[in-house]
Design a protein around this nucleic acid. Structure first.
Lengths: 146, 146
DNA sequence: ATATGTGCAAAGGTTTTGCAGGGCC
DNA sequence: GGCCCTGCAAAACCTTTGCACATAT
């Protein structure tokens, strides 16, 4: 945790903020919304006010610890930013049947980014790539005309 | 318009729905929100109730005429689905400085899609690709540490 | 003592829903 | 008539904000 803690130089690492981080570490595979964090904090019997959760998420994003992701379900979700070099290379597969979200490490986007930077004189900072489709298990179970 | 009208077999092509479609055709380069459509309908002095606009957008999406896109600005936006084969190949450049949205036709994603379909047994139906960065004119005007 | 953080409640913004009235087949 | 459509107003949701109190330096 010290890599993370070291980012709290001008901000206090309060029990609430620590708990939010802990919940993310315990749920690395999930993309949590404010409400889900609120419920998870209650399950731990360390309830955090919902306003504090929103403010904490905003802060953790500023500190570069979380990334806000939008899966079009009407609420903002957050994921831990992995602190290794492969971080930039990471996309999401969204299953239209079971709503599962699968992370994917492949990255063949460099070539495309180069093309776009040159052709459109657009300086790329980041990207967001989502694939919609059907996951392995839903393909098995799916009726022909789903 | 007849290609579009032909999709209204089980639903009526009412003046309100026709106007919404017309506004999209007149603003092909924009990604309109419900509120913007509401304002544009008022400018034409043919105001449509905001609830009707929401319901119309939902319907037009079901009919495959519009696509809902989310640019993270807290409201849903819609774009006309182009009815040619290049439709699938179309991405967005979002300028972090002036918030302009630029459409891009490049598509080098097939290779990546194939890799993902094989490696993850995920059947891809569609994708969403956004690049965040700085557009040509904002790069010129930008201070070194923006 | 001062700045920062928290929780509550209220407000804000977007979207959905219920319902009465209107139009079309 | 019956079904679909519209508009209004209310409700539902998610998120932000104001403020008083608490906590840390």
């Amino acid at each position: 945790m010290s890599e993370m803690e070291s980012r709290f130089t001008e901000h206090r690492l309060t029990p609430q903020r620590r708990l939010v981080l802990q919940i993310f570490l315990e749920n690395r595979d999930r993309h949590l919304s404010a409400e889900e964090l609120y419920n998870l904090s209650r399950e731990k019997e360390k309830e955090i006010g919902i306003a504090t959760i929103y403010r904490t998420l905003e802060l953790l994003e500023e500190l570069g610890l979380l990334r806000k992701v939008n899966f079009g379900d009407g609420r903002s979700r957050y994921e831990l930013i992995q602190m290794d070099l492969s971080e930039h290379h990471h996309h999401h597969l969204l299953c239209l049947s079971c709503n599962r979200i699968i992370e994917v490490e492949e990255d063949l986007l460099h070539q495309l980014e180069d093309t776009i930077e040159q052709k459109h004189h657009f300086s790329i900072v980041n990207h967001n790539l989502q694939f919609f489709g059907y996951c392995k298990s839903c393909q098995k179970n799916r009726q022909p005309n789903d």
